[in-house]
Amino acid sequence: MGRLNGQVEKIEATQINVRVLQDGKVIASVAADADGNYQIDGVAPGTYTIEIAAKGYETVSLTAWVIADQSTPLDRVALQALAVPVAHLRGFLADRVTKQPLENVRVQLIDDAGNVREVLTKATGSFEFENLQPDQRFTLAIEHDGYEKQEIAIEPIPATETAKLTRELVPIQQMEQLPIGDGLPVGAKAPDFSLPDGDGQLYSLADYIGQKRVVLVFYRGSW
């Protein structure tokens, strides 16, 4: 494994994000420290694109060749302020059950034209998409091993504003099997159903999801 390190000219009160991409996929994401230094350890040998981004500044891309057991220093960069107004999106992901922040979750932002940008969440569970075109709709897609996939519609964000979003990911149950008749464990995903009432009208759990809580009662019936 190798290491990448570099320096960015610091910007007052602005976080600088450093992302390492391989074949268009983000494999690591860190923030530069207060002096503008960053370091990414445990990078497999190979060629990478390093994206250095900050809100309101032009993103700089560098190419890096990582060699095993060596440190690869990158050119010092200074980010230039963007001439056009832009919008930002900042989010935070946590585990629904443990409430703990989720690190290294791949988050994709897709615009109406189908262009995809992706980032990874940091150790704090946070992620940022800087410098988005204002007043445009996006879809946020979150996919992470062991969790249910989520797609979220992002309403247009006005120029210079940062939209904030907090989301909990639902762990896919490695279902703790309760003895027969004991129902589902708390935390389990409730299976959908579509069943008729006495008049043949169908009811589904899906009709209630996102709207209301449901008290589901099983009873013995008139056997």
């Binding site: 708390v186 995903k189 099983f218």
Partner: peptide
């Protein structure tokens, strides 16, 4: 052939939050 009497409370996200058998 029949159900055992029980309640499940399912939240807005479709997750079982409480159960009583």
């Amino acid at each position: 052939n029949i159900a055992r009497p029980q309640y499940h409370i399912i939240d807005e996200n479709g997750i079982v939050q409480w159960k009583f058998v």
